[in-house]
Design a protein around this nucleic acid. Structure first.
Lengths: 115, 115
DNA sequence: ATTACATATAAGTATATTCTTATATATCTA
DNA sequence: TAGATATATAAGAATATACTTATATGTAAT
């Protein structure tokens, strides 16, 4: 399992992207499962545009991909990225985010009516 | 070799510190051996205060330690830091910096007179 | 002691980053 | 088609970052 080193600039870009609490948490959450913007909104005390802007950065860097499903846009980790194993390794070092996933599932924002 | 996750804020701090090309390169170089400021100056196209300021950030974050030896101040990685294994892992993913070490040894800035 | 060298700190500046609010766009539903 | 919901983009503001030059400090050598 020898890892080919990435380009220096790319490495710096990835580390910089992950060096933000919101984005690092988003990536850790996406490690658990794909999530739409409104689900992410549940766990951050931040405006919707702010979340979208972080997701944009993650997408531009190739770390995540998006898929529209009806009115929702779901984000997931880009597992085909060459540096995906690196992302996995980093996330391995940070605290588990299961509590936030539970928080999302409790509020369940994509379920319109409770009937 | 289970790794205990670090505090989220600490993780973000470390990633942010490493998310800069100069600092990431410094850390990669220190992985090879300890270096003084004037040696680092040889491989960066940057002023001396700028290098010192990066080293200060690395020191404040606990990633490196310093040791004065006469008129020189040598910096080395803080191998006792709890997140040192993490640093090692990250550096494993980036290109080898041996060429820059060679460059330092060729100019040999701590050798005052060539006689 | 004076001078030179190595490094650190101070102060200022240009740019980058991360928010915010306002608005545009896309989809669903009635 | 109109209204509601989900998301993206634009524009602006506050703050952070990374450099610069000038200067201070600490050590060595003459």
């Amino acid at each position: 399992m020898k890892k080919t080193p990435f380009d220096m600039d790319k490495s710096v870009q990835v580390l910089k992207i992950l060096g933000d609490k919101t984005r690092l948490t988003i990536v850790a959450l996406l490690m658990k499962r794909e999530l739409c913007v409104c689900e992410l909104l549940e766990v951050f005390e931040m405006s919707q545009p702010s979340i979208s802007q972080h997701l944009r950065k993650l997408k531009d860097a190739g770390l995540v991909k998006e898929a529209r499903k009806g009115q929702w846009v779901y984000y997931s980790l880009n597992e085909t990225a060459e540096y995906y194993p690196f992302i996995q390794t980093v996330i391995n070092y940070i605290p588990d985010q299961s509590n936030k996933i539970r928080q999302i599932e409790k509020s369940n924002p994509t379920l319109r009516c409770g009937c």
